[in-house]
Simulated scan of single mutants.
Amino acid sequence: MHDQLKDKTIFITGSGGVLGSTYVRRMLAAGARVVASDLKGHRADALVESHGENPNFRFYDLDVGQEDEVVAIFQRIMADGWEPNVVLNNAAITGELLMGAGKAFPDFANTSVEDWEKTLRTNMTGAFMIARQMDRDIVGRYPATLINVASMYALNGPHHQIYKDMPFKSFSAYSATKAGIHGLTLWLAGYWAKRNATVNTIAPGAVFNGHSDEFQRRVGELIMAGRMAAPDEIADAMLFLCSAQSGYMTGQLVNVDGGFSGW
């Protein structure tokens, strides 16, 4: 459906990861104008290299944990002539991301307050600040949609044994923030209901991103579908939530997890 999103201008935080970059590609293919953002670095560079020549694509450097950057972002976009009517709160710190910064993966007893608070700052406070700026700059001016990105671990505890002897573990702060983001969804859905804005949460399941065969086997045993998701399978549901077809949905959490949450 190349015109499914032809009337949408979609702003995405954390656009450079495996899901974010898939959303960008699929939304452009569906006819949307896409405003991508992420931290400076190779992921941002790869997005611009892939889509920079597309007239329906724009990229902005953005750290969602920095209040001054968030306060300015929608005015920057609108000053360039675009008006976002769909926003994806997709930026997040995961345990794997902390490892990529050169940190060893800690067990719970050795989790630092610094790493806990850094995760809350991006995953929860960043989502709040983006939503607050929508309230100031967008909501009520024209119909708008916010989609908060949670996780299969938002409302379901991880099976800690599947991480035994793996280089990464389930991260407590990640689970806590992904549960909290749906609380933000519920609060905002009612608050914006009379201002022609909808708010929903998507909870992706386990997405394949180069995981070992053994990890795939362990996770697959916990999922009704028996396997991890391909990024495009999460994007399929995200495109629906961004489209006019989801216009009567608000305050909902949509699990796209192959049945993980059904057992």
Rank of each mutant, 00 (worst) to 15 (best):
A197L: 00
K194H: 07
A176Q: 11
A189T: 06
K194I: 00
T201Q: 03
A197W: 00
N200V: 02
Y191F: 09
A173P: 13
G183T: 10
L188K: 02
K169Y: 12
F171W: 03
S172T: 15
I202A: 01
G180P: 06
A176R: 08
S175K: 13
T177W: 00
A173F: 08
S172V: 14
R195L: 07
T185V: 08
L186D: 05
R195H: 08
L186M: 11
H182L: 08
G190M: 08
T177G: 07
S172Y: 12
K169S: 15
A179I: 08
T201H: 05
N196H: 08
F171T: 10
A179G: 13
L188G: 03
I181F: 10
Y191D: 10
L186K: 12
L188T: 04
A193R: 09
L188A: 05
L186T: 14
A176T: 15
K178T: 04
A179T: 12
S170G: 15
W192M: 02
A176N: 12
S175E: 15
Y174S: 05
K169W: 14
I202F: 02
K178H: 00
T177C: 14
S170R: 08
Y191P: 01
Y174L: 07
S175G: 14
S170V: 13
I202G: 03
G183Q: 12
A176P: 10
T201P: 03
G180R: 07
T201L: 04
A176C: 10
I202P: 03
Y191W: 10
G190W: 04
G180K: 06
S170N: 11
S170K: 10
S172A: 14
R195Y: 06
A193F: 03
N196L: 08
T201V: 04
T185H: 06
L188Y: 02
H182D: 14
L188F: 04
H182V: 14
T198N: 05
N196M: 09
S170H: 12
T198Y: 00
T185S: 09
N196I: 05
V199I: 04
L188V: 05
V199T: 02
A179Q: 09
A193W: 03
T185M: 06
I202N: 03
T198R: 10
G183C: 09
K178Y: 06
I181P: 09
K194E: 14
L188N: 02
S170T: 12
Y174A: 06
K194F: 00
F171M: 10
T201M: 02
F171P: 12
V199G: 00
T198F: 02
W187T: 13
A189N: 05
T198K: 02
I181M: 10
